[in-house]
Design a protein around this nucleic acid. Sequence first.
DNA 1: GTAACTGCAAACGCTTTGCACTCCC
DNA 2: GGGAGTGCAAAGCGTTTGCAGTTAC
Lengths: 137, 137
Amino acid sequence: MDDQELFALFRKNGYKVTAQRLAIYKFILTRGDHPTADQIYQELKTDYPTLSLGTIYKTLHTLKELGLIQELGFNEGSKRYDPDMELHINMVCTKCGTIYDYKAENVKKMWNTILSDLRTKPKGQRIDIYYECDDCK
Amino acid sequence: MDDQELFALFRKNGYKVTAQRLAIYKFILTRGDHPTADQIYQELKTDYPTLSLGTIYKTLHTLKELGLIQELGFNEGSKRYDPDMELHINMVCTKCGTIYDYKAENVKKMWNTILSDLRTKPKGQRIDIYYECDDCK
DNA sequence: GTAACTGCAAACGCTTTGCACTCCC
DNA sequence: GGGAGTGCAAAGCGTTTGCAGTTAC
């Protein structure tokens, strides 16, 4: 999605285009792992010294509302924000908490089989695999 | 698992067998949905008037430690506690929050296929499907 | 008897909310 | 110009922690 499409999506839904919203969304996009609200805050406050955590939370809800990101609650600590809206597996390191997305054809096939067994059409899904990453071993 | 095995499991790991622990674990077992800490508290305080939320949280951690239950963090509200430790899909209603476990043989087969593609051996997994249940439609 | 557990209350951390000021359109 | 957005601080809520009294073994 280019900037023009993004701007149009905001405005079509009655949201204004602001520097903070763009910065937060682009930051999430560039990070492969799925940052927490505070990680976003820590990284962006250098460039945007007046930025507040409150704004970050409000923006994250807006982005979720627009279908641009997914919110993931975990057992410990904070929620994570994932800009990949397609079917994928969240590979979660149980030690350092880093997450990366795993996509494979097999997963899509499995998912389609499962869905065809269900009577209802789901609104969304989430698949996590918990493991220990190479850095933590 | 019968009571004797359960008692033995507690004691083998240095935990004492108490009325509260048994009541909390059995309550989770009998509920098909995955209750929150507060739901457990509300239901059990009639039979155990002195029971406190603090004890419930401590017990839930103990049960998790023993591998008897799984803790599931969600986007909104509280964590849920699931006594099914085998591979299954959590069917989560996005309106009322009720969860039931969905088990299918073909899921296991496909899951093993996916796992064999990974280099690492995972420590656990979680699969959620979000939908709208019949009562909420 | 003693180490572990319970119950209570206070503390904690993440997230949300309210409100005055500011900015996009 | 006006309504939406931001920044700040206070409040909210689920969960954790500390400690004195109690219980399992």
